[in-house]
Design a protein around this nucleic acid. Structure first.
Length: 961
RNA sequence: GCCUCGGUGGCGGAAUUGGUAGACGCGCUGGAUUCAAAAUCCAGUUCUCGCAAGAGAGUGAGGGUUCGAUUCCCUCCCGAGGUACCA
C-alpha cells in the first residue's frame, strides 16, 4: 500500500477533533493523578499575510515536546491563542474602513485553519484572543490592581494604596520607603489639609499604574505618538518621518519598582545567557553615589550620580543636561544670550541628528560655579548635549582624566584636566576599568581604585554630602497609546480630572464602535471623537487612550489555565495546579519587551498572593527565525528625470546612500543567472512595478555586466534587457514578496514531512533561510518507514516472532539517542537517528511487530499522523483512543551491550590501528593486549613506551619516544 | 565602541564530560533497472598526491596547555544579534 500522507492526515485530524483527543482537564484539588507540565508558545499576532513557514518552527518543537511529555505520563497543558490587538489591524481599518474586529476575526480564522493543518496537539477549548471583551475584562482588572497598589521598598512588595493613605493620615510621608516619582515630603497635617484633587495627585506618585506628564515619541507627519519599537534611528519605522520628544499626559507602569527583583530572579530561570544578559543590560543596574554639589552664591544644590566617586579629585567641572530644571536659575546674566542660543540649537536638532553625531561635542558655560564638596575647589558649571535628562539626575561631575566623553569635552572647551589614577601597573587598561593607583587625590593617594571607591563613599556619608545609591537604566513603561484598537482604560475622570477606578462589576469596559479610526491632530486619540465616551450621561468621561500591545500579552499564560472563567482571571485552583510555564518557546524579538513585562506582572500578582511562583517562565528556548530570500533591484533617484535605472556596479556603491532606492521584487519574477546573481528582464520588471504610482513614468535602463562577490565584472552574455538583482537573506514578509505558505508545502509533502523537515533543518535556536532543497530526503524517509510495515505485494505484514539481537540493538540505539536528544531540544539529530534506524532495519528486512510498535511510539511526537495510522494498523486502537495514551518507549541498555568493543589504538595521539577486545576486559588486559598487536609494534619499533592511556570503551593511546 | 553568541566538506549540519572529525540529509559522480525518462535501489564523495594499497594535511588565523584539542586558555580576523553620549 502506498503512503498517501494527505489522506492519512485529514483522517486523523478529523478523528482528533471529533474525539477531543487533546482536551486537557484541570484536576480537582488533591485529585491530580499525573504530574503537570505546561508547554507554551508565544502566541502570534494574526496578520493579514497569514502564517508563513517561519511561524510553525517553534510550534513544532513545542508540540513534539508536549507529545513526548504526554507519552511519559504527564498531564500536559499546551494551548494556543492570538495577540489580537495592535496597529496593523487599525492601519488596515484606516485604509479600507473595515472594522479591526472584522479583519482580526478573519485573520484568526485563517491562522486557525493553517495551524490545524500541521497536526498540533493544542487544546482549542482554551484558545484566547486578547481583543475579546471576556479576556480584556481581566487585563483591565489587573491594570486596576496595579492602580490600587504601591510598592513598599522595605517589604519589597506591592501593598494596597489604602495602607499608604492611612500612613499619610497618621504620620505624613517622611518615614515611608516606597517607590515614588516625587521626593516631596509632607506631614500628616499637610496631607489632611489637601483637597481630594491634591491628594489624588500625590497618590499618583506612588501607584504602580499612574498618570503623569512624560515625554513621548511624537511623529508630526503621522499625527500620532509612537511606541519605542516603532521608532528606528530617530525616524518612524513606517514612512521614515522625523520623531521628536514631546511631553504628554500619559499612563505609565512603575516597573522600576521591581528592577532589583527582575534582575536578581534571572538567576533562578533556565534561559540562555544571551537573553539573560540582554535583560540585565536593559535593567542596567549600576552602583555608585548620589552626591550634592553646592553652588557658589546660591542656595541651590546640584544632585549628581556617579559610579566613580573615587575620581572626585579630578572633577574639574560640571555638566547639566540642557533640559535640566536648574539651567535657567544658574545662568548668569552675561551668559544668558549664549545659553539661549545654545538651547535653541539643541531644540532644533532631531533625535536622529543627536544620535548620528555622537562624536561631535557641544556645550555652553552657564557662568556659575559649583564647589567640589571634597576638594572645595571652585568648578565651572556647563550644559551639554551629552548629558541626558533621563538617566541619573541629569547632571554629572565631569572627570576628564578618566572619562572619554568628559575628556573630549574638556579638550574642546579648554577645561582643566587633573590625572587622578596611575595606570602604570595595568598596561592596556581602559579609562573605564576600575584599575590603578590613586594620585593627586589627597587622602586617597596610594590606594587601589576599588579601595578608593569604598573610602570615598564612606567619606561622602560621613560628611553628609550624599550617599551610596543604586541606579537603573530601566524606565517606567509608557502605557498609553493614542490608538483605537486596544484595551480601554477601566477608569473614569471626574470634572477635576481625577481618575477613578471602575468597580469590578463595571468590567469589561468595552471598546465602542467608531466610524473613523484615524488618529486626531496633536496626538488626540480616535476615541476622543466619540461624544458619549468623553461626556457620559453620569457626567464622567472615559480615558480616550488605549492600552499598548504588551498589555494583553503580559498575562495570557495565566488565562490558558482556566480560559472560560468569568469570575476570576483564572481560578486559584487552576493557578495553583498549573503554577508556571515549564517550557516557553518563542523568538528573541521579545527579549526585553514582552518577557520583561510578563515577569513584572507575574511578580505583582505573586505579591498579591494570586500566583504561586515568582517567575512565570521556568525554561525558555528562543527559536531562530526562518528567513526568506529577498531579491532587490537598485534604482537611482535621478534629480532631473525622477527614477531611472543606474548601472549595476555604481548602484552597489550607492547602497546605503540616500539617493539609492532598493526595491524588493517578487522572487517568481526573478530568473537565476548563475550564482550568486539573478536577473529580471526589463519587461517583467515593468509589469511588476506598474501598479506603483511613483514609478509610473520611470525609465529603466540596464547595465551590462554582473556584480560578483563585491566586484563588478563584465560578462559577455549579459544582455541589455537584464536587470540584475542583489539577493539578501532576511525576514519573511509580505512586503518582500518572499512569504512561503506552509499550506503549499503540506499539500505537496504532508504535515508529518513538513514537521520533520523543519526540525531537520538545524538547531531550533539558529536562524536559517527557508530552503526546500532537502525536503525530499525527509519525504523519502517517511515512505521508507511506511514500507517497513508492508510486504512486496503492498499488504500490511508484520512478523510476530521474538525480535533478534540485531533488531533490538538498532531499536534501542534509536531510543537512547532520541530520548536524550528530545530532553536537550536537539530535534534535528532525533530525525537523523530515525533515519539511521529505518535504514538499518530496512537493510536486514526487519518487520518484527515488537520492534515496529516501539518505533511507531518513538516517532509519534514528530510525525503524529503516520504514527496514529500505523498504530491503528498494528491493532493498538482497540486498547486506546490514540497513540498519545501509549508509553514512550523505554530504553533497555542491555540490548546495547556488545561482547566485544572495537578500540582505536593510537601512537602519541594518532590513531594507527583498530582492534577488537572483549567488552569486559580490564584496563591492564587492554594495555597488555594493545602493545602486543603486530601493527602497533611496527609503529613503536625501537622507541620506548612511556605510558599507555586506556579510556574504557573509547580508545587506547600509547605514548612513545 | 561595549555586551552576547557563532565560524567544521560544494551546501544544511553531527561530534553530549577533551578521546576514531565530517553522523544524517541535500548535491554531485558512477552503476543497476527502463525503449526512454521519472521514481527506486546499490556504490563512492573533506582536500592533496597515487591506478591502487597507502601517505600527508585538515574544524576562521596564530600561539599555548595536554599522551591526545572542533572542544580548554591567550591574541587576532570575520559574521550574526543586542545596545549605545547610561555618568
Amino acid at each position: 500500500m502506498e503512503y498517501k500522507p494527505r489522506a492519512i492526515e485529514i483522517k486523523w485530524k478529523n478523528y482528533w477533533e471529533e474525539n477531543k483527543i487533546y482536551k486537557v482537564e484541570n484536576p480537582k484539588p488533591g485529585e491530580a493523578t499525573k504530574p503537570k507540565f505546561y508547554v507554551l508558545d508565544m502566541f502570534p499576532y494574526p496578520s493579514g499575510a497569514g502564517l508563513h513557514v517561519g511561524h510553525p518552527l517553534g510550534y513544532i518543537a513545542s508540540d513534539i515536546f508536549a507529545r513526548y511529555k504526554r507519552m511519559n505520563g504527564f498531564n500536559v497543558l499546551h494551548p494556543m491563542g492570538y495577540d489580537a490587538f495592535g496597529l496593523p489591524a487599525e492601519q488596515y481599518a484606516i485604509q479600507t474602513g473595515v472594522h479591526p474586529a472584522v479583519s482580526t476575526d478573519k485573520n484568526i480564522k485563517r491562522y486557525r485553519e493553517q495551524l490545524e493543518n500541521l497536526g498540533f496537539s493544542f487544546d482549542w477549548d482554551r484558545e484566547v484572543k486578547t481583543c475579546d471583551p471576556a479576556y480584556y475584562k481581566w487585563t483591565q482588572w489587573i491594570f486596576l490592581q496595579l492602580f490600587k497598589h504601591y510598592y513598599d521598598t522595605d517589604l519589597q512588595k506591592a501593598v494596597p494604596i489604602e495602607d499608604l493613605i492611612e500612613k499619610f493620615e497618621a504620620n505624613g510621608n517622611a518615614n515611608i520607603n516606597a517607590a515614588s516619582s516625587s521626593d516631596e515630603i509632607f506631614s500628616a497635617e499637610e496631607w489632611n489639609s489637601k483637597s481630594p484633587k491634591q491628594k489624588d495627585d500625590v497618590l499618583m506618585n506612588y501607584r504602580l499604574a499612574y498618570r503623569k506628564v512624560s515625554y513621548v515619541n511624537w511623529c508630526e507627519a503621522l499625527g500620532t505618538v509612537l511606541a519605542n519599537d516603532e521608532v528606528k534611528d530617530g525616524v518612524s519605522e513606517r514612512g521614515g518621518f522625523p520623531v521628536v520628544q514631546k511631553p504628554m499626559l500619559q499612563w505609565s507602569l512603575r516597573i522600576t519598582a521591581y528592577a532589583e527583583r527582575l534582575l536578581n530572579d534571572l538567576d533562578t530561570v533556565e534561559w540562555s545567557d544571551a537573553l539573560k544578559t540582554m535583560q540585565r543590560n536593559w535593567i542596567g543596574r549600576s552602583e555608585g553615589a548620589q552626591l550634592f554639589f553646592e553652588v557658589e552664591n546660591s542656595d541651590e544644590k546640584i544632585e549628581i550620580f556617579t559610579t566613580r566617586p573615587d575620581t572626585i579629585f579630578g572633577a574639574t567641572y560640571m555638566v547639566l543636561a540642557p533640559e535640566h530644571p536648574l539651567v535657567s536659575t544658574l545662568t548668569t546674566p552675561e551668559k544668558q544670550s549664549t545659553i539661549d542660543a545654545y538651547l535653541n540649537y539643541v531644540k532644533s536638532r532631531s533625535d536622529r541628528e543627536r544620535m548620528a553625531e555622537v562624536k561631535e561635542v557641544t556645550g555652553a558655560f552657564l557662568g556659575s560655579f559649583a564647589i567640589n564638596p571634597i576638594t572645595k575647589t571652585r568648578i565651572p558649571i556647563w550644559i551639554g548635549e551629552y548629558v541626558l535628562m533621563d538617566y541619573g539626575t541629569g547632571a554629572i561631575m565631569a572627570v576628564p582624566s578618566d572619562d572619554e566623553r568628559d575628556y573630549t569635552f574638556a579638550t574642546k572647551f579648554e577645561l582643566p584636566i587633573i590625572d587622578v589614577i596611575d595606570k602604570a601597573d595595568y598596561p592596556g587598561a581602559g579609562k573605564h576599568d576600575k584599575l590603578g593607583k590613586m594620585i593627586n587625590s589627597g587622602f586617597l593617594n596610594g590606594m587601589e581604585v576599588p579601595d578608593a571607591i569604598e573610602a570615598t563613599l564612606k567619606q561622602i556619608e560621613d560628611l553628609g554630602i550624599g550617599q551610596r545609591q543604586v541606579n537603573y537604566k530601566l524606565r517606567d513603561a509608557n502605557y498609553s497609546r493614542q490608538r483605537y484598537w486596544g484595551e480601554p482604560f477601566p477608569v473614569k475622570y471626574d470634572s477635576d480630572g481625577v481618575a477613578h477606578a471602575l468597580s469590578d462589576d463595571q468590567l469589561p469596559l468595552e471598546l465602542p464602535e467608531l466610524e473613523d479610526y484615524k488618529p486626531g491632530a496633536g496626538g488626540q486619540s480616535p476615541l476622543a471623537r466619540n461624544e458619549s465616551w468623553v461626556n457620559t450621561e453620569e457626567g464622567f468621561s472615559y480615558e480616550t487612550d488605549t492600552m499598548p500591545g504588551f498589555a494583553g500579552s503580559s498575562w495570557y499564560f495565566l488565562r490558558y489555565m482556566d480560559a472560560a472563567n468569568d469570575t476570576e482571571f483564572a481560578s486559584q485552583d487552576a493557578v495553583n495546579y498549573w503554577k508556571d510555564v515549564d517550557l516557553y518557546i518563542g523568538g528573541t524579538e521579545h527579549a526585553v519587551g514582552h518577557l520583561m513585562y510578563s515577569r513584572f506582572w507575574n511578580k505583582f500578582l505573586y505579591d498579591k498572593g494570586l500566583v504561586p511562583t515568582v517567575e512565570p517562565f521556568k525554561k525558555l528556548i528562543n527559536q531562530g527565525m526562518i528567513q526568506g530570500v529577498i531579491e532587490y533591484i537598485f534604482l537611482m533617484k535621478d534629480k532631473k528625470e525622477g527614477f531611472s535605472h543606474f548601472k549595476c556596479a555604481k548602484l552597489i556603491e550607492m547602497e546605503g546612500q540616500a539617493e539609492a532606492v532598493r526595491i524588493p521584487v517578487l522572487v517568481d519574477f526573478v530568473n537565476d543567472y548563475g550564482s550568486p546573481n539573478s536577473y529580471l528582464s526589463i519587461e517583467s520588471f515593468k509589469q511588476f512595478i506598474a501598479w506603483r504610482p511613483e514609478y509610473k513614468d520611470a525609465i529603466f535602463e540596464c547595465s551590462k555586466g554582473i556584480y560578483h562577490k563585491g566586484v563588478f565584472t563584465s560578462k559577455k552574455d549579459a544582455t541589455d534587457s537584464h536587470l540584475f538583482t542583489k539577493s539578501e537573506i532576511g525576514k519573511m514578509s509580505k512586503r518582500y514578496f518572499n512569504v512561503v505558505n506552509p499550506d503549499d508545502v503540506v499539500e505537496k509533502y504532508g504535515a508529518d514531512c513538513f514537521r520533520m523537515y523543519e526540525m531537520f533543518l538545524g538547531p531550533i535556536e539558529h536562524a536559517k533561510p527557508w530552503d526546500t532543497k532537502g525536503i525530499d530526503g525527509v519525504s523519502k524517509f517517511l515512505r521508507k518507514f511506511w514500507s517497513l510495515f508492508f510486504d512486496d505485494d503492498g499488504n500490511f505484514s508484520v512478523n510476530d516472532t521474538n525480535p533478534s539481537k540485531d533488531e533490538l540493538k538498532m531499536l534501542h540505539t534509536a531510543i537512547k539517542k532520541v530520548s536524550e536528544d528530545i530532553e536537550r531540544f536537539s530535534f534535528n539529530t532525533c530525525v537523523s537517528a530515525f533515519m539511521v534506524a529505518v535504514n538499518d532495519l530496512k537493510k536486514i528486512k526487519s518487520n518484527n511487530r515488537r520492534i515496529l510498535e516501539d518505533l511507531v511510539r518513538l516517532i509519534a511526537p514528530f510525525a503524529p499522523h503516520i504514527a496514529e495510522e500505523l498504530w491503528e494498523k498494528l491493532g493498538k486502537m482497540e486498547h486506546s483512543k490514540t497513540i498519545q495514551e501509549a508509553q514512550f518507549p523505554k530504553l533497555n541498555e542491555a540490548y546495547l551491550k556488545e561482547d566485544s568493543v572495537k578500540y582505536p589504538i593510537a601512537i602519541n595521539g594518532k590513531t594507527r590501528v583498530f582492534a577488537d577486545f572483549p567488552a569486559d576486559a580490564s584496563k591492564d588486559d587492554l594495555e597488555k593486549a594493545a602493545i602486543e598487536i603486530e601493527d602497533i609494534q611496527k609503529w613503536t619499533d625501537g622507541k620506548t613506551v612511556r605510558k599507555i592511556i586506556v579510556v574504557p570503551n573509547r580508545m587506547i593511546n600509547i605514548v612513545v619516544g
